[in-house]
Simulated scan of single mutants.
Amino acid sequence: MEIPTAMEKPALKIKPLPSFRLRTSSLNTLRLRRIFDLFDGNGDGEITTAELCAALDRLGLGADPTEIGTLVKAHAPAGRTGLDFPAFESLHRALGDELLGVAEEGEKEAEAEEDMEEAFRVFDEDGDGFISARELQAVLGKLGFVEGRSLQTVHEMICSVDRNSDGMVDFGEFKSMMRGIAVAVPGA
């Protein structure tokens, strides 16, 4: 089987949400690194087709293993069977550009706000406008983060951003936290 050239790289037939690619590059790189580490099931620094399929299944985004295998082969470095982090980043960028287009400068701010709102809604499972400790714990658990195993750890995470001390994170606190992450990343 021939590996497609850069112009012929196959497209994934999953329609991502607009937040597939956040517009803040430093936050996006941090997020992608965490996702890469979660998807790299055996921690060898490479995501295989099987690992990527398993991760997508856990997220409820099951995809055709043959299709995923073709994508992995098209983006894997020469001589490797899986994706290292730069290749994973390249695949993410290619899928985002193909499916979402490249944002114009004037659109970036509005899209960043929409990304924040959508990310907040992922955590705010009951839609009440607040992220409770149980909601945060549930989402962290679904994503496989060890922080989600301890309710005490989750409470501590909330307290670190809860400016009004109500025990929950509202959208304003969430935005401040996310912007703080973007600022705290070296090279941002």
Rank of each mutant, 00 (worst) to 15 (best):
S90Y: 00
E51Q: 09
T81H: 08
L17T: 13
E104R: 13
T49Y: 14
R31S: 08
T81D: 15
E114W: 03
G60N: 08
A50I: 02
I68K: 07
S90W: 00
E105W: 00
G45A: 04
F39L: 02
G62I: 05
E109P: 00
S25I: 13
E105P: 01
L17N: 08
G43H: 06
L52W: 04
T81S: 13
R21F: 09
D37V: 09
P16H: 08
G69T: 08
G82I: 03
D97K: 10
L95C: 07
F85R: 00
N28I: 12
G106C: 05
D97W: 02
N42C: 04
K108A: 11
F39V: 10
G62W: 12
L100V: 02
G43W: 12
L22S: 05
F39P: 00
E104Q: 14
A63Y: 11
L83T: 02
P16Y: 05
E46A: 05
L95Q: 15
L38G: 11
L32A: 12
D37R: 03
E51N: 04
S19K: 01
G82A: 05
D57K: 11
L59A: 11
F39R: 00
R58W: 08
A55D: 03
L71Y: 08
H75V: 13
D40C: 01
T81C: 00
E111R: 10
L61A: 10
E46V: 04
G101L: 06
L100F: 03
L59W: 13
K108L: 15
L61F: 15
R34E: 13
P16V: 07
R23V: 13
G43K: 04
E67N: 01
A110E: 15
T81Y: 05
G41R: 06
T81N: 10
E51P: 02
D40M: 01
E105D: 13
D40H: 01
T29R: 08
G43F: 10
E107T: 03
H92E: 07
N42L: 06
R21H: 07
L91Y: 11
S90I: 09
G69C: 11
G101P: 06
G82F: 02
E46W: 11
E104C: 00
L32T: 08
L32N: 10
S26H: 02
T29S: 11
P86L: 06
E105Q: 12
A78T: 02
G60P: 04
A54Q: 11
H75N: 10
L56Y: 14
L91T: 12
C53F: 14
S90H: 03
A76I: 06
E113F: 06
T81A: 13
R33G: 07
S90L: 12
